[in-house]
Each structure stands twice: as structure tokens, then as C-alpha cells.
Design a protein around this nucleic acid. Structure first.
Lengths: 181, 181
DNA sequence: ATATATTGCAACATCGATGTTGCAGTTGAC
DNA sequence: GTCAACTGCAACATCGATGTTGCAATATAT
């Protein structure tokens, strides 16, 4: 039963993330139905709708944090770290399509975690600038935003492209652009 | 009074677009309050919440269509048309931050208009490919997605950058990328 | 086999959002 | 100045979502 409980809970989280990404006002009833459990069961596991949202965000933050750790953003060579980050973060964006930036204003703890992760990535971009991998006239904040946008785009608009190829496409567009040399 | 009516209506649309972009489940009451009118006044102008949404989308589609027309995507040289499109569409994205892709499934007419506009832009990207402005190994759909992503990013995450400079940044990132040559 | 935990189901209460209506006051057009 | 249109305000009805509880059935662990 513990096993079942954990499976259903995770099923509710994944299903909820998917539905909430399409429509942030999806009802608990709809999520429960899509996850194949009763509405009251969801309410027993998550006190509030807000608690369910928190759990979804936490799951996404956990996955993203693992990716950031394993990419070794501060130690590995910039091109290697970039590719490892992309190949890891794209599946995370796909599995948890919820937009953490919009939906977490009310959760200071999750917000702080997100900020910390964001800072790690920004520091990496800054290092890429400093080590000469990015053009000198490029603003680091803009570079950061471009990378995020490319990741979201390949993750959600091209779900059929597998992670390694998606990472290649993003890194290529990010560094070289799409125009002719 | 006609003048007042028109002014208030447009104020409701703009305010509504702004609030709905932040939180798609913003209540009519919140929109009315933010626009400085009574809740019932909004209901007199828009039969449904859905009708209000439709009006917001229609306003965005109108603005976007004008931009597409004036960019002369089929006639002007590719670099010129691209820059004109970007300089026009970025303010539109800022004034109407609602995501037309997500929020219009139920409105077939608006959906069709959106598709038509999307096709015009895709055709322009295809022309850029054919005329050798984009690398031969680049998929047109991916190029299209990248352009959209860059526009959204500069429009919403860098609201302080004015339209001409924003267009430069996007075109530069799109064609040349951010890495060193 | 039995005690324990979990689930589905039905029923209930509550709350906020939606939409409507009547009325009085104000504003604009003529 | 008069008339028509519009507005704010209060009140009301309705509806869907949320959250709770009791109970019977079922699965789990020991």
C-alpha cells in the first residue's frame, strides 16, 4: 500500500503538471479524474489546491537541482557543461511543463529555491562571457534569457525531438545563430 | 458619451490583457476594479467572460495583422522585412501579453485568424531559407520557433528596452547567435 | 487470519465567480 | 433644457470548485 500510495501520488503530480500547464485553472476534479483516482483521495493527500501546486513545483525544483549539480557548471569546461545542462534540463521542462516563474509568487520558500537555481545558471553564463565563449558585446542577462527561451521552445513545441538532438539544436542556435556566416 | 464608452471599453481590454497575462484566472471583478469601472458595466459590454477574452484576442490579432501587412513580408528584402516585423510585433506582444496559442482553443474564428497569421510568418521564414539568408541545414519550423521565442523573451523579460533596440537584439541573436565566431 | 491503512462513493457545507435586474444619479447630444 | 444613454450601486440567483465526513470495500503487512 505504501508502494501504491507513492505511485498514485506521483501520478497525480505528473498528471496535474501536464493539465495545469495547458490550463492553470484546471480543477482538482479534472486532475483527479485524469490521474484515475477519486477527488477525495487527492484531497486526503494534499490539504489544499495550493499544497498540490507546491508539491508539483517542488518536484520540478528537485529535478532541476539535480541537473544543475550533475552539469558541474562551475568546474567543467563551458561547452561541456552547457551541453550537459541542456541535455538534462530539456526532459525536466517536458516532464514538468508548469511555469515556475508565474505560479509561485505566493510560495516564498519555493521562490527562494528558484532564485538560487536561477543564480547558478546566471553565474555559468557569466563565466562563459568571461572565458570568451560569448561575444564581448553581449549582455549576460540577455544571453541568459535567450537560453531559457530556446530551451522552452524545443521542449514544448518539438516534443518529438529527443534530448541529445534537442541539446545540439539549442546550443547551436545559441552560439552560432541560424543565419549564414 | 460614445467617446467615453469607447475609451472605457479599450481601457478594460488593455487592463484585462495585462492581468490575464499574469494570471489567466483573474476574475472579472478584479479586471473591472483595475480598469476603474464597476463590475456590472463590464458585464453590460461583454455578455460573457468568454466574450471579453474574445475581444482581447481580437484586439491583439488586429494589431498583429497590421504589423504583418506593413512589414511587406513577401515583397521587401528579407533583412528589411525581418527588422520591420520585429520592430512592429514587439510592442504588440507587450501591449497584449496574452498567449493566443493557449487561450483560444474554444474560439474557432480567432483560431483560424491566428493560423493564417502564423502561416504568413512561416512563409516568410521559408523565403529567408530559400534566398540563402538562413543556413541550409536549418529546419524552417525550428527557425520559426526560435524567432517567436526571442520576440517573447525581449518583449516580456526586458520591457525597458525600446522597440528598435529590441528588434536589433532579436535579429542579431537570431542570425548570428551569441557565441564568438 | 487479523489488524491497519487506503480507497471509492455519496452526501454535505461553503465560498467565490458569474450573470441579471432595478433604480437613482450623471453625463453627453441636440 | 430635455431626452437618451450610460454609470455605479445594491441585491439577487445560480453554478462550479473546494474541502469535509462517514461508511463500506479492499488491499497490505505481520
Amino acid at each position: 500500500m505504501r508502494a501504491d500510495a507513492a505511485r498514485n501520488l506521483s501520478s497525480v503530480l505528473r498528471t496535474g503538471a501536464r493539465l495545469l500547464a495547458e490550463d492553470p485553472s484546471t480543477s482538482m476534479a479534472a486532475i483527479a479524474a485524469a490521474a484515475g483516482v477519486d477527488r477525495t483521495t487527492v484531497h486526503r493527500r494534499f490539504a489544499n489546491r495550493e499544497a498540490l501546486l507546491r508539491a508539483v513545483f517542488q518536484a520540478k525544483l528537485d529535478s532541476a537541482e539535480r541537473v544543475l549539480d550533475e552539469a558541474r557548471l562551475t568546474e567543467a569546461p563551458v561547452p561541456v557543461a552547457l551541453h550537459r545542462y541542456l541535455e538534462g534540463i530539456i526532459p525536466v521542462a517536458r516532464e514538468w511543463p508548469v511555469d515556475t516563474r508565474r505560479m509561485m509568487q505566493k510560495d516564498p520558500e519555493a521562490s527562494a529555491r528558484r532564485e538560487a537555481q536561477s543564480a547558478r545558471l546566471s553565474a555559468f553564463i557569466q563565466r562563459a562571457c568571461d572565458e570568451g565563449y560569448l561575444r564581448a558585446d553581449i549582455d549576460a542577462a540577455w544571453a541568459r534569457a535567450v537560453l531559457d527561451a530556446l530551451v522552452d521552445s524545443i521542449a514544448h513545441r518539438f516534443p518529438a525531438v529527443d534530448a541529445p538532438q534537442a541539446a545540439d539544436l539549442v546550443a547551436d542556435a545559441f552560439l552560432r545563430g541560424l543565419g549564414v556566416a
